[in-house]
Amino acid sequence: MTTGKTRVAVNGYGVIGKRVAEAVILQDDMELAGVADISADWRMQVADGKGMRIYAARPEASAAMTANGIEVAGSLDELLAAADVVVDCTPKKVAAANIETYRRMAKKFILQGGEKHEATGHSFVAECTYESALGRDATRVVSCNTTSIVRTLSALKRVGLLRKARGTLLRRATDPWESHLGGIMNTLVPEPEIPSHQGPDAQTVDPELDVLTMAVKVPQTLSHLHYWNVELTRETAKEEVLDAFRESSRIALVRIDRGLAALNAVKEWMLDIGRPHGDLYEVAIWEDMLKVDGNELYYAYMVDNQAIVIPETIDAIRALAGTETDGKASMDRTNGTLGIGKVARLAATG
């Protein structure tokens, strides 16, 4: 029996995959066909306990899942057969090997930012490339850092303020849940090339952006921190810049003088307001740190590497499926289900 909803398969149930699956369940125009993975550990047991249909991404994974008490609904091919769109959340470079399967089964698919732009020929940030994704067979939701770059710089570009931007990225060492397995301790690791890859990646979304990035890996796991110096097209006032950022529903202005002085404080705030996993979907720009000096702008913001791409992925599903042709309407719908916008209102009122 058809429900008229877009049936979504999630391949890879890790940091991003579990959040995509949970977000899909919240959408009234989508249904989760199931999740696939090769793991049989606690993560899949949690998914099974939440009532998600579990599929074995490889034949050998099925026996291990069953042995651990996980009910296996079938193979990856069987999951894909039951889906309209597949969101690939497998580890970096694994997804590229899955493309042949998706194309063989004529399934629309979404890759994450660890893959190259050329894998799909289209890079997605909802505020910029929703309409150009409509009806496509595939797109790539760009990385967490690239998403934040495009969101913030596009906000300035839309009001005619952006000339060029130069950013320094302090990148978290690894995901929090696996920091015991790797990461770095008592050191900083600069990326070996300038520009770092995020600036050119942002240009796959908007080729007109004059952006250069430098990055360094730091020994913490909560999120990324960006510092930006932007040359504006003209002299302006701080409030005009803030108004430009306020026009984006996925940017939140936060303040140091209200106690949100560090990454851990913002993360704790997300937990306190009931966000699942303490997720910050927005780019959190420090409003009281932001400075405008003539036609130069300086600001810093926080990027939740586990969360920022989740609303973009939901919008990308609608764009590929063609169930909503208006990007703003899709964003409004996604924002409502994920509580995006509430943060901005709380920040404004204290």
Rank of each mutant, 00 (worst) to 15 (best):
D37L: 10
P311A: 13
N229Q: 15
G259T: 05
E191K: 14
Q220R: 14
L290V: 04
W42S: 13
V10Q: 03
G17V: 08
T152F: 15
S148G: 08
A83F: 00
V211M: 00
A73T: 14
V24G: 02
S179T: 06
A40L: 12
R250F: 07
E324H: 07
V86Y: 01
G74R: 14
L76Y: 04
A21Y: 13
K217R: 13
M65S: 07
Y299N: 13
K5N: 02
S249C: 11
D88R: 04
V24I: 10
D315S: 15
S123T: 02
N11P: 06
I16L: 11
Y281K: 02
S132W: 09
K157M: 05
G278L: 15
A344Q: 14
Y55H: 08
R246K: 00
V205C: 02
E127T: 15
V46P: 01
E247V: 09
Y298T: 13
R250Y: 13
T213N: 03
D243H: 00
G121Q: 14
G167T: 07
A138F: 11
E178G: 05
L346K: 14
A133C: 04
D315Y: 00
G341Y: 01
L271V: 11
A61E: 01
A261E: 03
V230H: 07
E71K: 13
V205D: 00
D175Q: 08
Y227D: 05
T139D: 14
K93I: 15
C128L: 02
E78S: 09
L162F: 11
L169F: 13
T236W: 01
E31L: 14
I285E: 00
W228N: 03
D304Y: 04
R104S: 15
V189N: 00
K116F: 13
K157C: 01
A321V: 06
T325Q: 14
K157I: 00
V8E: 02
V150M: 03
A319R: 13
D257L: 01
G14E: 01
I38R: 01
P195A: 02
A348D: 15
T66K: 11
I54A: 06
K107T: 08
A73V: 06
E131N: 03
L134S: 11
H197T: 04
G294T: 06
I54R: 10
W177G: 04
V159Y: 07
P311H: 12
E231H: 06
F245C: 08
P311V: 12
K164A: 05
V85M: 01
D326R: 01
V254W: 08
G339V: 06
Q306V: 10
Y130D: 02
G12M: 07
E231P: 05
V125L: 03
T323I: 05
G336A: 12
D29M: 12
L134V: 07
V254P: 02
L162T: 04
D28R: 15
G14T: 14
K107W: 10
V24H: 08
D77H: 14
A133E: 00
T187F: 09
R7P: 03
S39G: 13
M1D: 02
K217A: 11
G182W: 05
C128N: 07
E239D: 13
L263T: 01
W286F: 10
R58H: 05
R172T: 11
R158I: 07
A97I: 05
R104C: 03
S75R: 01
L242K: 15
S248T: 06
M331F: 09
D48V: 05
E231R: 11
E268M: 12
R318G: 12
D84M: 10
A73M: 15
H197M: 11
E240G: 04
L32W: 09
D304P: 04
K291E: 12
D88L: 08
